[in-house]
Design a protein around this nucleic acid. Sequence first.
RNA 1: GGGCCCGUAGCUCAGUUCGGUAGAGCAUCUGGCUUUUAACCAGGUGGUCGUGGGUUCGAUUCCCACUGGGCCCGCCA
Length: 503
Amino acid sequence: MEIGSFDRGDNISSIDEAKLESIKALRNGGIEPYPYSYSVTHHAKEIKESFAELEGKEVSIAGRAMQLRQMGGITFIDIQDRSGRIQGLIRNNELDEKSLLVLTNSSIGDTLGIKGVVMKSKRGEISVGAREITMLSKTLRTLPNKWQGLTDTEARYRYRHVDLMMNQEVLKTFETRSKFMRHVRDVLDSRGAIEVETPILQDVYGGAKAKPFKTTYHTLDDKQMYLRISDELYLKRLIIGGAERVYEISKDFRNEDADTIHNPEFTQIEYYEAYSDYETFMKMMEEMLSSFALKTFGGMKIEYQGETIDFTPPFARMYWVEELKKITGIDVSTMSDEEARKLNDAELLGLKHPDPYHVADSLFDKYLKNKTYQPTFVLDFPAYMCPLTKIKRGNPLRAERFELYCGRMEVANSYSELTDPTYQRKMFDDQERERKKGDEEAPPFDEEFLDAMEYGMPPTAGIGISIDRPTMIFTNQTSIKEVILFPPMKSLPPNELSNEKDQ
RNA sequence: GGGCCCGUAGCUCAGUUCGGUAGAGCAUCUGGCUUUUAACCAGGUGGUCGUGGGUUCGAUUCCCACUGGGCCCGCCA
């Protein structure tokens, strides 16, 4: 099979006959090539960092053999574990019979355990001088080129396990992602919030404007179900119920094309806090991002794609409707349908649905988005753009909503949540009308949610915090696929030969 | 959905300009070597050149379609 075509779609390399022979040889010598456990005392990085204390002491390390230099009676094996690499130094005449058998049947890619003494080689390389070598897992496959490694983007995503073993910085990226998610949780937990789980499979989707994935729940009653586009409405029902502070780490699904900053399946943390408004969350976000930068990178400034992003609070505030008016003379908050259509033509926006909502949004992208490289609160949206938001105090044309931008990407979206059930019902009616006109992104009427709202919802601030995009910034990546372990890939064409024997 | 680029050995890449069924390095196999670290030296194995069709005496190379990937645009708060 060949990698270039991915014909079989199941493997990046073929099974190596010689390695099967090694397995036989090991078993003939009484050694199981797939044992149960191994006692690891140290990681590579620890040994290198604490060499002074560890020199002469016995340690056990385990990991994948990435390089192997054999010169007659002495072998150097570079063992890679999660922390990095360290050299094993093996002299044949110091090994017992079993270790020697393991050594002669070892190859690059095997997972090995080495027990021995911390020392330096003649060339000064910190090493583990082996007394015992244990086969922990015999590989059947061949690793990519030790220098260039695996660089083909498609292969890296389809065979992420190979990507991880060949490109250790990928693991660092996902460690950073994990740290960020942990940090957001910590911040919310410290506010006394509880983490909840709400349905991913929903009868009535809502909480955002987006095309859903449809599915069918045959076992229940064969009805149409949807993968959630947002968990907003469920979390609000919990606020109505008295939970006061709730959040969910939510995988949301939107049936749209992928690009470098969108993935059909993405992760955000939605958080709702009773008795607070969007000002509370602007402060919270400043604190959350700056403290993460400080804790993780030792400073408020980080490098992203050759430019510095400064997370020192306070972040810039862009009152974008006013800003846009200054630049273009257009007030998008009072734009009529007719004016929107004209602007679509005059500004060459090329929108399919040139309604005020899309035109305003498009004008922001055209004139203002490029000014959001530094952390920037883009705030006070036209009221008509925000059907689930309270109108701004003192200005009925605006809504109390902000989007936090960073690196020209939207990374959070927050409102002073609408709590007036009568007004909310009117908003749903409007949406329903749009929907009947053919806007398939307009969310359906949600009577259950309105019923809940009619019991009375306390003043509440809500926010959705992206996990994917801040991770891109913190790991200096330009594609969302680099921060998603298994990004969706198109199916490979079936191979007619795939039922035939292989190898 | 539109444009541009790409797919050659397990990996990383040459070769395609001007058509004659393919090369390198690493990996792998054999032999040598007891302090290497891109180890080294000698020899060997390995490819229906992404898929299908067309032009041609002959196609990895030219043409068309398809497929997978990347980037840009559109769409997606």
